[in-house]
């Protein structure tokens, strides 16, 4: 049973961390994080709604987008649906990098796997998607995604315990503040996962 199938409210963890520990999140961000999508929106709308997206020109930095492994050309037309996997990459080198680029000159070279928009916005309510970040976006878009909030299972919380303690500025669990000395222990003790919101400063 996944943490979302457990059908009980997840605790809410708020953490403010120093930027020096951002790289501790990279393995998790590469593999993909569960993120709440409030309603069926386009990939573009989802990205623009991330905290600070316009401040860092996020759309310009994201040159390659995959939905369920299919490269996307039109991020306005690609509508998100429950359980979709979205992967995001900055500009990539070589022929392959050019071929995978959204709306790029060489897009037809991979047209057999290109994402075909067919989903509608008919569904209602919030759902979860998985978001993966690659290469330069780990440091460029990682803070926005983490501030948006991600669902972490108990293993991920345990893996992050030490870096969180090292970069701890302040934190609370369901509104109850805790000090740096208790941060690692609290993360390790959360059973069944949490919705975690990180502010990287």
């Amino acid at each position: 049973m996944t943490i979302l199938e457990a059908n009980k409210p997840l605790p809410r963890l708020n953490l403010t961390l120093e930027r020096t520990v951002l790289s501790a999140f990279f393995p998790m961000l590469q593999k993909g994080c569960l993120v709440l999508c409030p309603k069926p929106v386009s990939v573009e709308e989802f990205l623009l709604a991330l905290p600070g997206a316009s401040d860092i020109n996020l759309l310009e930095k994201i040159q390659t987008v995959f939905v369920d492994g299919h490269p996307v050309d039109d991020i306005k037309a690609a509508i998100l649906a429950p359980d979709m996997e979205v992967a995001l990459s900055a500009a990539m080198p070589g022929a392959l990098g050019a071929v995978m680029r959204r709306g790029g000159y060489y897009a037809s070279m991979r047209r057999h796997i290109t994402f075909q928009a067919h989903e509608s916005r008919d569904g209602q309510g919030a759902f979860f998607i998985t978001v993966k970040l690659f290469n330069l976006l780990l440091s460029q878009a990682g803070p926005s995604l983490l501030q948006n909030g991600v669902v972490l299972d108990s293993n991920e919380l345990e893996e992050l315990a030490k870096p969180v303690e090292a970069g701890f500025v302040r934190g609370d669990l369901d509104g109850k503040k805790f000090p740096k000395e208790e941060a690692a222990q609290i993360l390790e003790s959360i059973q069944g996962g949490a919705i975690a919101i990180f502010t990287i400063q």
Binding site: Q30, K61, T64, F66, G69, P71, A87, S89, A90, A91, M92, P93, G94, L96, G97, M100, R110, I113, K132, F134, N135, L136
Partner: peptide, 23 residues
């Protein structure tokens, strides 16, 4: 960005995740 950031930061092996994602 490719020649000034992506390649220096990660080398050509930066392609692994993306090619894997593309199947």
């Amino acid at each position: 960005p490719v020649t000034s950031q992506g390649l220096p930061a990660f080398g050509t092996n930066v392609l692994v995740n993306v090619v894997n994602e593309a199947g």
